[in-house]
């Protein structure tokens, strides 16, 4: 289970994430949508321990990612948008490093690695140095690494970018299957059709704020867009605002939303 409790994070005077309250249950596949710079990647970075929230806290299976960072990260499988592999390690060597880093014995690691190599079709190139891999091959290897320790939480940032149709199908099926087996999945994506197809719930982020949270049917209902595609609903609600909001802009927005008594007086 993933919990965000009043989480905020800024970059200088730009508020990247504002008062995020969110809970993703075990077995739920959650998709976070939003423009470039809306705050999705900052949210993910806080979840995996790369950034620290300025306010609030993030809990992974009940472990705070700031005070219990190692316990939290050992429960996460993370697939970043730009996969990192060691150029001078083969895919198999990298998978062994990750498996053993997560505490698997050599024997268990071998079993888990063989399983993921089989699942992601890495067999042909698992023993080549990863510097020769294409983007798709790297992405598949990172997926395999993220699943080696069978994490209860899976965080995927733009999982479908650069993949061929076969790999896209593989990833969608995999996410669906993992969610059904009880894994909490947090996915950030611009691929709206994929979100529509596999997500249990979606969140729409705009300028650091979660402006919608619910199922796709609830989204259509809320915006009176029954029968429309997720793409058209999303475009109609998210507008053209790109990037985070500055402190001044937030103050102005709050002044409009909650006018003070003096503002209201004639």
């Amino acid at each position: 289970m993933i919990q965000f409790e009043g989480v905020s994070r800024s970059y200088g005077d730009t508020l990247a994430v504002r008062h995020l309250d969110l809970q993703i249950e075990s077995g739920e596949l959650f998709a976070l949508l939003g423009h470039n710079g809306a705050g999705k990647t900052t949210t993910i970075k806080m979840m995996v321990g790369l950034l620290r929230p300025e306010a609030g806290r993030v809990l992974i299976d009940g472990r705070d990612v700031v005070t219990q960072v190692r316990e939290a990260t050992s429960r996460i499988g993370y697939v970043p948008d730009e996969p990192y592999l060691y150029d001078k390690l083969s895919g198999r060597e990298f998978l062994y490093f990750v498996a053993e880093m997560h505490g698997l014995s050599r024997k268990d690691a071998t079993v888990a690695i063989d399983r993921e190599i089989e699942r992601f079709g890495l067999g042909r190139f698992a023993d080549e140095l990863s510097e020769s891999y294409s983007h798709g091959m790297k992405q598949r290897t990172v997926f395999a690494a993220a699943l080696l320790h069978d994490p209860p939480v899976l965080v995927v940032d733009e999982p479908l970018v650069g993949l061929d149709p076969h790999s896209i199908r593989l990833v969608k099926d995999l996410l669906h299957e993992r969610a059904q087996s009880g894994t909490s999945i947090f996915m950030s994506t611009h691929t709206l059709t994929a979100a529509e197809e596999i997500a249990d719930r979606i969140g729409v982020m705009q300028r650091g704020e979660l402006i919608f949270l619910g199922t796709i049917d609830e989204l259509r209902h809320e915006y009176h867009a029954e029968g429309k595609s997720l793409e058209s609903v999303y475009l109609s609600i998210s507008g053209g605002a790109v990037g985070g909001a500055t402190v001044d802009e937030v103050a102005q927005e709050e002044a409009v939303a909650h006018p003070t008594a003096s503002d209201e007086s004639p």
């Binding site: 299976d61 190692r70 316990e71 050992s74 429960r75 997560h102 505490g103 698997l104 014995s105 268990d108 079993v111 888990a112 399983r115 320790h149 069978d150 994490p151 209860p152 087996s181 009880g182 894994t183």
Partner: peptide
């Protein structure tokens, strides 16, 4: 989750 070989708690301990 049935394929697990080391629980996260065990993993952290190791």
């Amino acid at each position: 989750m049935t394929e697990s070989t080391a629980t996260p708690a065990e993993a952290t301990r190791v």
